[in-house]
């Protein structure tokens, strides 16, 4: 089934009050951010989407795919699930080796086509572009660091699941190469939904879903003048990334003062 749209139908907030925004339609190719204070219900909203909520979660929201209730097989058969969710988790509980875990996931996520070994290889290569120290296939999942865990989850969702809809919960908190991740992700045409506190990701989105007290308060389309200064934000952000990387590698930063003057 080709995915054209996701619809979010409003439910109610933590206090039982009606959600102000009653309907949001996301179309194929949209890049969307979900923003809001800590505890405002951002994770809960993407979980509703991933669960294909049908007024059966605590929020009372309903999710439609191509305008209709999602077929049961989306949830019962991972090979048919059009959504990959990169959760906020920074640890795996799984006691399997990375190789075995990815091979099992590859087998159940894809019906046909590419053999599991080559999928696993590509997934690891993608993940290792995002981490500092590479993930070794023989390590156990539980041995991976927080950043390696997030990198592997992003790679698993993008390469191995390769679904038309990708939900990402606060990728910026992972200590991974964030700009590299964005660059790699944008090569794909999908619906991307980022839960984020990051100005760069927010400005790169087509619109921002604003959360408060468990509900969607408003939908803000990225304005033309916001886009104009987004280039400058990107430069600033790249500079800060470089700074971070140099600190990580144990280098001195004295030569960067002039560059800071230039971007700030």
């Amino acid at each position: 089934m080709a995915i054209e749209s996701i619809t979010i139908l409003g439910g109610h907030g933590k206090d039982g009050g009606e959600e102000p925004v009653r309907r949001i339609d996301l179309r194929m190719g949209d890049v969307v951010s979900i923003v809001g204070p800590t505890g405002s219900g951002k994770t809960t909203l993407i979980n509703d989407i991933e669960l294909f909520a049908d007024a059966n979660t605590p929020t009372g929201r309903r999710i439609l795919i191509n305008g209709a209730v999602a077929p049961a097989e989306f949830r019962d058969n991972p090979a048919r699930n059009p959504i990959a969710l990169i959760t906020q988790h920074t640890t795996f509980l799984s006691d399997m080796p990375v190789q075995g875990f990815l091979e099992t996931h590859a087998r159940i996520r894809t019906d046909v086509g590419e053999p599991a070994e080559s999928l696993v290889e590509r997934t690891l290569a993608f993940a290792n572009q995002l981490t500092g120290e590479p993930i070794l296939v023989r390590s156990r999942m539980t041995e991976l660091s927080g950043g390696q865990t997030r990198a592997l989850l992003i790679a698993d969702a993008t390469i191995l699941c390769n679904t038309p809809i990708v939900l990402l919960d606060e990728v910026e908190n992972a200590g991974i190469h964030r700009s590299r991740a964005l660059e790699l992700l944008r090569a794909y045409r999908k619906i991307f939904i980022f839960v984020t506190h990051d100005p760069r990701i927010a400005l790169l989105s087509d619109y921002r879903i604003v959360m408060r007290n468990g509900t969607v308060r408003q939908v803000l389309h990225t304005a033309a003048d916001e886009r104009k200064f987004s280039a400058k934000v990107t430069k600033l952000d790249d500079f800060l990334s470089r700074l971070r990387e140099r600190i990580r590698m144990g280098e001195s930063l004295t030569d960067l003062e002039a560059e800071l003057e230039a971007v700030a």
Partner: peptide
Amino acid sequence: RVSQAEREVFRARIQEVAPAVRVREVNALH
């Protein structure tokens, strides 16, 4: 409490042992 990927692999492990058993995933807190 787990990532989507782990949830799916756990489901596969169940089906390897017990292919005829229906698997239903729940969050029993909510």
